[in-house]
Amino acid sequence: MNIVVCVKQVPDTASERNLKTDDKTLDREAADGLMNELDEYAVEEALQIKEAQGGEVTVLTMGPDKAAETIRKALSMGADKAVHLVDDALHGSDALQTSAALAQALRKIGFDLVILGSESTDARTGVLAAMLAERLGVPQLSLAGKVEIDGGNVRVERQTDYGHDKVEGSLPAVVSVVEKINEPRYPSFKGIMAAKKKPVEKLAVGDIELDAAAVGLGNAPTQVVEFAAAPPRAAGTIVTDEGEGGAQAADFLASKKFV
């Protein structure tokens, strides 16, 4: 089983995150970079499938040099090798362009199964898995809370508002996972030591048969036109408990679909 996990380095959600005023892209220098949290579940799932079925786990990321930190984390957790798509021409690429670049890289790497987190905590488009599956012409099984491999098929429990759907598709396929799927392992120190020696292949736009004029901020089909700071939070509603407090709290939670 040849599994590729797509991971992304994102700014730490605990730090202050800003867009740059000049080109309206994320200021990646100002914040500490971390592996997108949902991608940790994707890496863990890939490792569990490999441990059960055998095979190889390749990490794929697209991002600046700094994204090598996120590759190293995935390798420390136990992935076997990595491909780092890094090219100044890719800066500012939108989801359509990113999916085109990653699809080309995936064609070059080859795969039976591609696993991704269901969205990134920075851009939060949540469309990459669908775009990749479409571009690669393979089934997409999204929002998986459980993944099973059975011969040439993959079965997932797809999380929904009402519970889950059982969905099945043939391999090769693209699967996106949600955080309830597993408990990501901590990198072990042996893993951290071993990660240094694992192969990381760097690819530029020219290496994946992609036209540099098709990617990057200047060529992006979608543009950030304007951005504004989030307004301060409105004051909450204070409910005085006159014996109905519990019911009112339950109604509030139900209205927000928390219960």
């Binding site: 072990s188 120190f189 042996k190 951290i192």
Partner: peptide
Amino acid sequence: GALGIFGMHLDGYGCAGTDNVS
């Protein structure tokens, strides 16, 4: 133990073999 913290700076015998600063 799963992290590899015990005897992490020792070599061999299942130890991680990190440096002393680590």
